[in-house]
Design a protein around this nucleic acid. Structure first.
Lengths: 249, 249
DNA sequence: ATGGTAGGATTGTCCGACAATCCGAATTGC
DNA sequence: GCAATTCGGATTGTCGGACAATCCTACCAT
């Protein structure tokens, strides 16, 4: 048995992970600020005293975490960024592997969306309203293409969530949205009239948020989400159906 | 100007990303099943016709996504896994960079936790109840160590969420939890009596879930979350205070 | 059968190299 | 003098090869 504790367990973590942690720590503690360019790979390798290949592996890790990304226009350096929507993809992927059912997605939406709509109505700015209106318009436009319609529906929810100005809610709702998109394919294919109902609900929600009528916004969002469920039932889709990944384009 | 559209934009994605996507696709479409070992790096490199270094970069990406991981006991091969709790860390990290406030975390908890408690009471199995009871007991035991207490509080919420058997809710609640832990440090430090109140609320919630009294579970969870807010106010913490990363051990 | 050992396979890390690209500065043209 | 062009350096993406450490497997000895 261990009579005396003299030695701490030796860290067996691979170097690339420790490099990643070191950089990540600098980002989290704000030593490296958002938008700042990281040192070059060679530079980092020398600073850490490791090979460039090792640094690159660490960078890939940070990149997929969303902590760093290539500069937008130029693909040169790497800059620090908030892990905004990058995470949504990963989360959705993970969820699809958990054999999520339509009923589960619906339950989550039912919990989250009405309060989100309420908060959005209370706190929305003019810019938020414009974004939401825009999202609704986008949906109204591209109803022919199912893939575009699916994306537009998610975009609408997303815009409403952003209006709450609460990143925790935005990220909390992201998983449900991500999976919803995959499940909508079935629905929109089989129930054409669902598209109209969705547009209808969006119109009411937009109006309520515009008038900053929190109660009404919540109510209509509730109906909107409830409608999805009804749509699935009408489409003859078993609510315990396991959602498959969206078809690739 | 572009008179006719003849050419699609050529994919300029780096190879390591395309390799990652290819593997990821095989995992999502279940060609590679959970727990299965991936081919060796050299093998993959030959199959894809790229260098091993490139494959490694792709693997790092998948690893941090949670799609693959080292075998538990042995660190040999890489196996496919569901991205369970790996994601929580990343999400929390991202949130801390968004300058989240106590008020925002609280709002999210207030939205999510009561319905979760309700659903948990309705659907919990015997095993779920045991896990929840266990989590509450863990909190009751380690109240001296603040870090342990913080973790235990999160563990309790986590156990309750698991009892809903809804991965979407579990993942949706993860971000809030992650950030809550960081914010609790301040609270527990300044308001010792908060610890007792937390234990008290947990006891009531456990009892309600045990009796499968959904309404009561929801009610007590509401009080529990509301109590956090009161605690922050009592501690003299500005609710708009930006939550800092938890102190390292 | 138990125990131990030799080989092979695999991962983590390193070195060096090269094409493609981008940034910026020097050079050239008007 | 100012603008456009060109050239060189810096940086990234990818490749090839290499080696120690470790783990698995199968074989061998007691």
């Amino acid at each position: 048995m261990a009579s005396e504790v003299v030695f701490a367990p030796v860290s067996t973590e691979p170097t690339y992970r420790r490099v990643a942690s070191a950089i990540s720590a600098r980002i989290v503690d704000r030593t490296l600020e958002r938008g700042m360019a990281l040192p070059s790979e060679l530079d980092l390798a020398q600073q850490f005293g490791v090979n460039r290949s090792t640094v690159r592996e660490a960078l890939r890790e940070l990149e997929s975490t969303g902590l760093i990304a290539r500069g937008k226009g130029t693909r040169r350096m790497v800059v620090a960024e908030p892990g905004g929507d990058v995470l949504a993809d990963r989360i959705g992927q993970a969820l699809l592997l958990s054999d999520v059912t339509v009923a589960q997605v619906w339950e989550a939406l039912m919990v989250l969306q009405p309060p989100i709509a309420q908060a959005a109505a209370e706190r929305r700015t003019a810019a938020d309203l414009a974004a939401i209106t825009d999202a609704a318009a986008t949906y109204g436009r591209d109803q022919s293409d199912p893939a575009a319609a699916m994306a537009a529906i998610a975009g609408f929810f997303s815009a409403v969530a952003s209006a709450t100005h609460n990143p925790v809610l935005v990220l909390g709702q992201a998983p449900a949205l991500q999976v919803l998109v995959s499940s909508l394919e079935l629905l929109l294919d089989r129930i054409p009239q669902a598209r109209v109902r969705v547009g209808d609900a969006q119109t009411h929600i937009v109006a309520a948020i515009r008038d900053q009528d929190a109660g009404l916004a919540r109510l209509w969002m509730e109906r909107h989400v409830r409608d999805f469920r009804r749509g699935f039932v009408l489409a003859g889709i078993d609510l315990d159906y396991r959602i498959a990944p969206a078809t690739r384009r």
